[in-house]
Every structure is written in C-alpha cells, then in structure tokens.
Design a protein around this nucleic acid. Structure first.
Lengths: 331, 331
DNA sequence: TTGTACGCGTTATCAA
DNA sequence: TTGATAACGCGTACAA
C-alpha cells in the first residue's frame, strides 16, 4: 500500500548509491558494477519502486506512447487494424492511446491536438477519407505519423494499405465474365479509397468493353441498414451482381435479397470488401476480399517505430497483398 | 512548423506577463483581468502554443489519462464497452490508453504495471474472469479501479455489470416451459461471471422441478469454432434447446445445426448471450439477451470520474438492466 | 564506475 | 490581480 510515492531518491538512499546510478540500473546502462547493480535491484524490490513514466517523459522527451485515431473501435475493420497496432506497440514497449473520431473532422482535429499535447511519440491515423484540414494537421507536425487503411490522395504521408484499385479491378473483372451489369456499393466517392476503387472498376469495365453506367454505383455509409435499404434500387438497376465495400452493407443487401426470394449465387452474386467474421457466418457464406487488417496495423506500427527512432526507411508507402476468398455468394 | 517547442515562458514573454499568469489563463483561473487575459490569448495564438501535458502531469500529479485493459478489442462485446468508456472519457477530457490482454494473467499484470507507471488517473478493467493475482494488483493500488462486464467474486471492487444470474434464470425458465433438456454453453466455470450464470440456470431447473444434469453444461472458449465443434455433443446430449453465452459460439452452433438439417426454432431453440450485430444477420436471426454494452462502459467511466475526483459515491456495485430480444431461434 | 547538478515545462504556494 | 520561486521525478552531461 504505497502511502507516498517512492522515488528514485528513496531507492538511492536505501541502496547507498546516488540517484544517477539507480537511473542507470533502471535504464539498463551497462556501466554499473555487478555488485552495485544488485544492491540497487534489491532496494527497488524492497521499496516496490516503480519508475514514474511522466517524469521520465519530461526529462527524456520521449513518452513511449503512441496515439491511434480511428472512426470507431466497434467496427471489426478498424478493430482488426488496431489490434495489429497494439500488439507491435506493446512488443516495442509502447502504450497506445486510442480515440474514436466517428469520422468527424472536428473530432479528428481535436484528438490530434490532444495527442500532441500528450507528447505522443507517434500517431497512427485511420479514417474514412482524409480531409484537407486533417491532412494538414498531420503533415504539419514533427511527430511521426502513419496512415493505415487510409489513402492520402497526395501520396505523401507514410501509409500502409492494400491496392484498392487492383482489388476492385479483379472483382469487377471476375463478375463481368458472367454478367453485363455489375453494381458497386461503397462509401463517399470523396474519399480517396473509394476513388481508387472506382478507378479499378472503370478500368475493368473498359477492358471488358462495357460502358460505365453511373446508376450502378451506390454511395453509402457502410451500414447494414444501408445494404437492406438498397435492395429495390439494385433490382431496379437490373444489376446481376454487386461488389460491396463494406461487409455490413453486403450482409444487409444479402439478407434483403434473400427475403425477396432471390437466390445467391444463382440469381445474383455478391463480393464483399473486407472478409470480417460475419462473411463466414451468413447463409450462404459471403465471397469476400480478404484484407490483412491485423498485418496492416502491425506493419504500420513497425514502420512507425522506425520513424520514431529516426531509422532509415526506404519506402514509406507500403502496399500489402489482399486475397479473394471464394465462398458461396459467387459461382 | 514548430522548430523548437514553445513553452509557457515564450508566451509570457510575448504577452509581457509572467508565466504564472499564462498558466492561470490556460487553466481558466478567473483571477485574471480581462485585458491581460486577451493579451495572453493573443500570444498563445500567435505562437501556436500548446500546453505540454507531460509537464503538467508531473507538476499536478494528474494525467487526465485512464487505462482500459481488456481481452481483445476485436471482440464486439469488449469493443462495445470500450466505446462507451471512450465517449464518456473524452466528454470529461480524459484520454484512454487501451491495451489487449488476451485474458492472459501475465499480460494483465504487465499492463496494469505499465499503466500505473504512466500514472493513469484510473483504470477500467474488463476480463473474462478475475484471477486472484490480478485482483490483488488492482485492489492494492491507490489508483481508482472499476470493473466493467467483469465480476469480482468478493464483490468489493467497484464494478458495472448486468445480473447474469437473473438473465440465465430467465432464459432457462423460458426454455423449460417447452423443453426438458436445456443445454448451457459458456466459458470457464472458474470465472465468476459463468458461476453466476450456472447459479441462475440451476435455480430455474429447481423451480421447474428438473434435475440438474452435468452433461448439459458445456465449458468453452467463446469462439465460433467452439460452437461448430459442439454440435455432435449437443445432439448426443439429447438437448432440445441451448443457451449460449457467446454470440460467436451461438452462431457456430446454429450453422452446424442447420448443416445437419435441424430446423430452428422448430427442432431446436437457441438463445445467445450478448446481442451483437451478428445475431441479427444470421438466418434465422438469433434470439438473444441484450446487454447494454455501451452503457456499461459509459456508466463505468462516469463512476470512475467520481472516484478519481474523490466525489461521494453511494454505490460502487452497479447493475444495469438486460433485455430478452426475441428473434427467430426461439418459438 | 560513480556522483553532482542542471534542466525538462508545468502547477502551486506565497508575497507583493 | 500579478509575479517569484519552489517543487514534481527523472535523464544526462560533466566531473571525479
């Protein structure tokens, strides 16, 4: 029961050395005689001494804390990335300050401000899109920053992503082998990530000599309800298949189609965008693009450690491999 | 582009006042003349000054940071609670250090140690069970601690939960109206939460004059695969219905039953334990106990703010209401 | 190999 | 209403 905080001075006194020596022992400095070291260690144990990371942070200007800002941790997509970040962070002895932004620009800015005032050593930013203001806030600091699962249209900030354009191309191409009308359901086209997707979609259309039809592109909000509500429009569009960026939306659409008596994959095909667990649980199970969420987070955090330690980094724009997982909403 | 950090001294110099005055303005102390205040504010804006929270933390012994330790953020259950915590935390201007423990005792202890060294003002602990050592680590600190969705068998640590015993009783009772053999699938019985569940289960059996059968209780690990793998044993047990604490496990069981050609709810009934989104997405959709995850987190964090500010608290063991949501895996 | 002394950027106490 | 000045607990030259 720690009545009053025990400091490095208390340890020094008990061990009969100076506080500098205690500091050396605590920080693993090798220039300490074995015998002295043991005395210090004993004193530390006896007093149940625990270094004060705040004081340490002030003196060393390093907090061993990184900030993670993301739309919401309740999304399996962002949670997957966050988990990867945290594992690598803790491996390198960093703590993670996690903050939910709801993709709200003001919240994002406020969080970034707060993280910087807490003197985090680095920031991992996940968003649905990257507004100019947020981009500026992120780019205008000395604190290392890395985007994960988030595209910087300027391609300047360090980032870890998959190639959304290529993935969209591949899915579209696959479905165009069997259908003329393939719908694409995604988030706001203002977000670079979705712009990339549409670029791949259009390229595939072109390569398959099919004209782009605007009414086959559906901008949404990634929610289950979004998918449910889309079913009539999808049917009206005469689409025979759909690529749906959000798994939740895909499941909503799937269930709504099933309710209408439309059979998958015979009457309609769906490919969803991020292979979260629910894609396996649906009936029929959902064909999906597997994004290595955990790895994206892990790689991002690993890269961030290098940036924080000012190590040489040859490439700051990392692209990880995705994979098409065939299940039962495609033939 | 902040070349060198600008401190409170810089602001004082530019504003032509002492640093003490700047500190007062920054901290909203009212004893500052309006005119002086404006000068300071102008200087702050001009220099783009941002208070250093680390220095502030050292001087004030408050970090406005709380720690959250949970098994894994990729679980929608814990993510739901964590989201509630974060919202209230940010409302009260706290940041949240989030750490995944994988329910591993050693990791839990290490995280707690790390949080304490970071001088967090409080800790929210979520676990699957609470080991004696962890309990001791939590109880033996002056830092306020609160459990969320986690039972302290000693009923001493502050906590926010639902009444698992009552919920289990209600579900069991409901199913016993139609069946003689009701299975219960949950996590380790060593965890207080599951002990509570079984207590309710047994009470309901007793009230319905049905003998407890050990082979109807299945201890598992909350995973989807757990549910899938259980199907043969469940069938062998002759159970006609099951209560499944974990939604993932419930869905696994559901899908495995469907594959065997067993129809729900006609041939078998299931009630799952935490009403995560997937319970709505399955086919048939899953009847479930709704646990107010977000509220549990929010209430826990609210209570924690009171503990941290040493406000009067009349009750530290909070119980929130759950709800039975009838969908299509029960009649 | 060890110790002294200063600085990190605030808060807070005490005078003025 | 304002200003000096002493903590806060530690890292780290620099000296010994």
């Amino acid at each position: 029961m720690e009545e009053t905080t025990t400091t490095i001075y208390d340890v020094a006194r008990v061990a009969g050395v100076s506080m500098a020596t205690v500091s050396r022992v605590v920080n693993g400095n090798t220039n300490v005689k074995e015998k002295t070291k043991n005395k210090v260690l004993a004193a530390i144990k006896e007093l149940d001494y625990r270094p004060n990371a705040v004081a340490r942070g002030l003196a060393s200007k390093r907090t061993t804390t990184v900030g993670v800002v993301l739309p919401t941790i309740t999304s399996s997509y962002f949670a997957g990335i966050a988990r990867g970040v945290d594992d690598i962070a803790s491996m390198y002895n960093y703590n993670v300050i996690l903050s939910n932004s709801d993709s709200d620009e003001e919240k994002e800015l406020k969080i970034i401000e707060s993280l910087l005032s807490k003197q985090v050593d680095g920031i991992v930013f996940l968003g649905t899109g990257l507004s100019p203001k947020v981009r500026e806030a992120l780019a205008g600091t000395k604190t290392p920053v890395i985007l994960a699962g988030t595209i910087d249209a300027e391609r300047e900030l360090a980032s870890v992503n998959i190639n959304y354009t290529k993935a969209a191309y591949e899915c579209t191409d696959l479905l165009l082998k069997r259908h003329k009308k393939v719908a694409y359901v995604l988030g706001s086209l203002d977000d670079a990530e979705n712009a990339d997707r549409i670029a791949g979609y259009k390229q595939a259309l072109e390569d398959n000599k099919i004209k782009f039809a605007k009414n086959l592109v559906f901008e949404g909000n990634y929610s289950y309800e979004n998918g449910k509500g889309l079913v009539d429009k999808i049917i009206a569009s005469k689409a025979e298949a759909a690529i749906v960026a959000s798994d939740n939306t895909a499941v909503g659409l799937l269930n709504a189609l099933l309710e209408k008596g439309i059979k998958l994959p015979d009457d309609f095909e769906i490919i969803s965008g991020s292979n979260s667990p629910i894609t396996m649980y649906t009936n029929p199970s959902m064909s999906s693009i597997y994004q290595p969420l955990y790895d994206m987070g892990a790689v991002a955090m690993r890269l961030l450690t290098k940036l924080m330690l000012k190590e040489e980094v040859d490439e700051e724009q990392l692209i990880l491999d995705y994979e098409f997982i065939k299940r039962h909403t495609t033939k």
